[in-house]
């Protein structure tokens, strides 16, 4: 078991190494960077939704907090970008931990409602506190600087994001196959059974919620620096839904499903631009089609078809 070669991770590394050499132009490199960032957010979210079985319809809110921390703290208070990034994670972590205790007494649609509400409140706050956030128009983000040099080039960003993605995939795999991960999956499978073997169900739900929220915040910061601009749309309800959709389309409780879901749904809007005006209709129809015909998601469906698990 532990000697088994981690083929999945090797394939991911191989693809990430190959991408810069095969993409025809910077448009596709930009797309690859955004895919990788989304993939990391979705990995975190899948731990919560797919493995632990707890829904969140407000994760874009946490992403927004991270993004705005990286915009506001350096701009208004002169913080170093890395410190601001950390600040965003701390704020998100505290907020998520505070609300998580009461929220995770809730189940099913009540939990969906609460997380949705939280995301919307964050979004409206970002939209309204214009003196800090620039309001609905958003605000520019100062460039990230590492070791005294500012990062502008897409190539540099790509390697940073790719390295982080490899670590994130590896860490997720480790986590799932550990006592912590087993407890998460067990409370999804049977809450009462996991309780009677000693799993403190609320504590586990809170931990994974906070972890995935902080992760989203970190990715929000990275996105903000990479794009150089933030707007309230980062924390939009629809963005939360997009992230959840990536989890489900790729495959719940599947590490590689997270990657596939993120890649496909990041590319989809680009592919749909040719539909001029019909993008929303087509996007909605594709979501419905996926859920109706592949309700288990792409990777688990394929895995079942070829008779092997992950």
């Amino acid at each position: 078991m532990q000697k088994k070669l981690n083929i999945g991770l090797l394939i991911v590394i191989f693809i990430l190494l190959a991408v810069p050499f095969v993409v025809p132009n910077s448009f596709y490199l930009d797309l690859a960077i955004r895919m990788a960032i989304n993939a990391m957010i979705v990995l975190g979210l899948n731990l919560l939704i797919g493995f632990a079985g707890q829904i969140s319809l407000g994760h874009a809110g946490f992403l927004g907090i991270g993004a705005y921390a990286s915009a506001v703290l350096p701009t208004h208070f002169g913080w170093h970008p890395l410190l601001a990034m950390l600040g965003g994670c701390v704020i998100t972590g505290i907020l998520a931990a505070l609300v998580a205790r009461p929220i995770f007494k809730l189940k099913g649609h009540y939990l969906a409602m609460a997380t949705l509400g939280l995301g919307i409140i964050i979004n409206i706050t970002l939209r309204n506190e214009a003196q800090w956030t620039g309001g609905p128009d958003g605000m520019p983000v100062p460039p990230m600087s590492l070791f005294g040099t500012e990062i502008y080039s897409d190539k540099t960003w790509y390697w940073i994001v790719a390295a982080l993605l490899v670590i994130a995939v590896w860490a997720s795999q480790n986590l799932i196959d550990s006592p912590f991960g087993r407890a998460l999956r067990a409370l999804h499978g049977s809450e009462v059974a996991s309780q009677v073997v000693g799993v403190n169900v609320v504590r586990y739900k809170v931990s994974i919620f906070v972890l995935s929220a902080v992760f989203a915040s970190l990715m929000g910061s990275i996105t903000a620096h990479y794009i150089g601009f933030v707007s309230p749309n980062f924390a939009d309800f629809f963005h939360s839904i997009e992230l959840v959709t990536m989890v489900v389309v790729g495959g719940m409780a599947s590490v590689f499903g997270s990657l596939v879901g993120a890649v496909l749904l990041t590319a989809l809007p680009q592919a749909l631009t040719s539909f001029e005006g019909w993008e929303t209709v087509v996007f909605g129809a594709i979501l419905m089609g996926f859920m109706i015909f592949l309700p288990k998601g792409i990777v688990p469906t394929l895995a079942a078809k070829f008779g092997k698990g992950e």
Binding site: N174, F180, V199
Partner: peptide, 19 residues
């Protein structure tokens, strides 16, 4: 069955992630 041994194990999240 392994879940049954939950309480006897080190359940630390970060140690787990770092393998």
């Amino acid at each position: 069955v392994m879940v049954g041994a939950h309480l006897r194990l080190d359940r630390n999240l970060f140690k787990a992630a770092l393998r």
